[in-house]
Simulated scan of single mutants.
Amino acid sequence: MRSADNYIQGKLDERRSSGIYRALKPENNLVDFCSNDYLGFAHSAVLKEIIAREISIHPQNLNGSTGSRLISGNLIYTENLEQQIAAFHKSEAGLLFNSGYDANVGLFSSLPQKGDTIIHDELVHASVIDGARLSHANRYTFRHNDLDSLEGKLKQAKGICYVVIESVYSMDGDMPPVMEILKLTEQYNAHLIIDEAHAVGLYPCGLVVHLELQDKVFARIVTFGKALGCHGAIVLGSDLLRQYLVNFARSFIYTTAASFHQLAAIKMAYELLEKAGDNIRQLTNNISLFKQGISPNPVYCLLNSDSAIQCLLLNSNTKAKQAASHLQNAGFDVRAILSPTVPQGTERIRICIHSFNTTAEINQLSAAINTFINAE
């Protein structure tokens, strides 16, 4: 075996022996309590129909984009869509990226420079961390939602400072004290950037617009693969920021542009979102129903969250995998989240509530969870 193969095999064996080996699984027929399809758009026959209609009235467009947007892949349709999305989120401008990962890597690898500072919550998306690592800026992490910890890092900041948080955290489902964080960033002349990936849907335009802070936040990242049920992302901010990213964001410059089908799907998803009041109300009701159904337990606690992401802490990889297996055997698609994805000792099952989950499904899931935690 070659030396590279020996290394690869050794690392995989380490994962298996630690109980954290990852493997891909095909789709199943279990009741969905794990996907990010919060409003059911990915399942929506209506969305599929209006996407097909949109494509049919633009027959001149190609199957693929043929190149990067700076070469042959830019369309008037794309630029109009960016303007429409920016207006929806009450932003001056926006730039589309092929995925949320691309958006965060492009933004954070290109904007902060050597001598600048990035300060991020310890629980931000991996894509934010990866982008920050690719920059030459100083990088600090502050304790989750901890204002004192953030202020301590702000006092150490040099150069232009960027503070990065999420409006809904992907693994805990909670929300930050945005107003207080904003006050600190203003006090220390820092620029606040908020990833809205898991907030859009619960709040149609995102938490920032819900709080009417869009004019005070430097930039926002909105992804389309969660509540909007399609794919891609946009960085929202000033037109000046948009121009900068077109010139310096490598994940934008050096990649093939999105296909027309992807663009049409995004546009129609926003059209559906504008009419999704009933879906949002049902999602909110379903979240409350689930939380009410979980019995208090002295060992295993449900994290405090009002979002679609609900997490039961089980404190070990073994218990998390046992709980997930128990629920899957009961007919529910719930996944274990293991360390090192989350810190050791905070292993959990992550439950995603959707507008399309029925009362019966939620009650049955709650009962299955209660059976497991009370038997321990």
Rank of each mutant, 00 (worst) to 15 (best):
S3M: 10
N6P: 00
Y7L: 13
Y7W: 07
L12N: 03
L12D: 00
D13M: 02
S17V: 10
S17Y: 07
A23W: 09
K25A: 12
N29P: 08
S44D: 00
S44P: 00
I50M: 08
I55G: 00
S56Y: 02
I57D: 01
H58C: 04
Q60D: 14
N61E: 14
G67A: 10
Y77D: 03
T78V: 10
N80L: 15
E82G: 03
F88C: 11
K90E: 07
S91W: 04
A93N: 10
A93M: 09
G94P: 02
L96M: 15
F97M: 01
G100N: 09
G100L: 13
S109E: 15
L111H: 06
Q113F: 06
D116K: 00
L123F: 12
A126P: 02
I129Y: 12
D130Q: 07
D130V: 04
G131K: 02
R133L: 08
R133I: 06
R139D: 06
F142Q: 03
R143P: 00
H144F: 09
D148G: 09
E151V: 06
G152R: 12
K153P: 00
K155S: 11
A157W: 12
C161A: 15
Y162T: 09
V164Y: 03
S167V: 11
M171D: 05
M171I: 01
D174L: 01
M175N: 07
M175T: 14
P176M: 03
E180G: 00
E186P: 00
D195M: 04
L202E: 10
H210R: 15
K216E: 08
K226D: 15
G232D: 10
L236P: 04
G237W: 08
L240I: 09
F248E: 14
F252G: 03
Y254Q: 15
A257H: 08
H261W: 08
Q262W: 10
I266V: 15
A269L: 11
Y270E: 06
L273D: 11
N286V: 03
L289T: 09
K291P: 08
G293V: 02
I294P: 09
I294R: 14
S307Y: 02
A308M: 13
I309A: 01
Q310Y: 11
C311A: 13
T318D: 07
A320W: 02
A320V: 05
N329A: 09
Q344K: 12
I351L: 03
S355N: 01
A360E: 15
Q364D: 14
I373W: 11
A375H: 13
E376L: 03
